[in-house]
């Protein structure tokens, strides 16, 4: 898909932008950086956010691992991080980012604040998906003598899968927007391109190109998500 949009963009530049022949390569590279950041931070946020969501759900009153204190503490932390505006989180996280990757500038460094912002979001999103599961299914598994681990892996996660997959698309799309914001602080990707060329140097054409590419990326992610969830749902019909 990248290659195809690259070819089309090249033709566009040749016709309308004359000697801006560095632009297609720059846009392509920035797109790649954006996708790279979004993909990795989505992965990291699910790696941490999913277990968080499972703990949030199962530690609730009456659930299989009821622990109200833990539930409240976790819930408060999640809420606190979620209430931070991303741009603030981006700055606050700089020392932590330096500690983890050694620098606070660039694509790899951006993954840290992006993941930090997405983890609590993912935790709530997956929590909602898990709560949609009828308690009767958990009760049935309990009545068969299932362990808590078996209930999580054989009932909760498989039953919630279509809804979780749709959540992945929502998260990734949110992260596309956040990654552009990170780009303003030197995070790389389409955000950096749009800010330094489109905004600082008044190269409005480049701004619009990045907007169009972003739209395409967002559409693409949503389509993939819908398709993947639809596939699971259709299989079960």
């Amino acid at each position: 898909m990248l290659a195809i949009s690259g070819i089309n963009l090249a033709a566009f530049f040749a016709t309308y932008l004359g000697d801006y022949d560095w632009v297609p390569a720059a846009v392509l590279f920035a797109s790649w950086e954006t996708l790279y950041m979004v993909f990795l931070s989505t992965a990291v946020s699910y790696l941490v956010g999913m277990p968080l969501a499972i703990i949030l759900v199962t530690s609730e009153k009456g659930h299989i691992l009821e622990n109200l204190q833990l539930n409240q503490v976790l819930g408060s932390i999640v809420n606190a991080v979620r209430s931070l505006p991303f741009i603030i989180l981006l700055i606050l996280a700089i020392p932590f980012t330096r500690w983890v990757v050694g620098t606070s500038i660039g694509t790899v460094a951006s993954i840290v604040p992006l993941s930090l912002a997405a983890i609590p979001f993912v935790a709530r999103l997956v929590e909602t998906s898990l709560k949609e599961i009828d308690w009767g299914l958990i009760e049935a598994a309990l009545s068969m003598g299932a362990s808590n681990w078996q209930i999580i892996t054989k009932v909760l996660l498989p039953e919630a899968m279509p809804s979780v997959v749709l959540g992945v698309a929502i998260t990734a799309i949110n992260l596309v927007g956040y990654s552009a914001m990170a780009g303003v602080l030197g995070g790389g990707g389409l955000g950096t391109l749009a800010y330094y060329h489109g905004y600082m140097r008044y190269q409005t054409g480049i701004m619009w190109i990045t907007v169009i590419v972003l739209i395409v990326i967002v559409q693409g992610i949503q389509m993939l998500g819908d398709k993947a969830a639809g596939r699971i749902i259709n299989k079960r019909r």
């Binding site: 009760e139 049935a140 598994a141 309990l142 009545s143 054989k154």
Partner: peptide, 30 residues
């Protein structure tokens, strides 16, 4: 002990993520 006490429900409580075969297999996996 619960493995030796079967239970059926008003709303069946079958797993939508599993086929009929896999649903019946479930307690055996447990």
């Amino acid at each position: 002990l619960r493995q030796k006490i079967g239970m059926i429900f008003q709303h069946f409580n079958l797993l939508s993520s599993r086929t009929v075969f896999e649903n019946v297999m479930f307690p055996l996996e447990i």
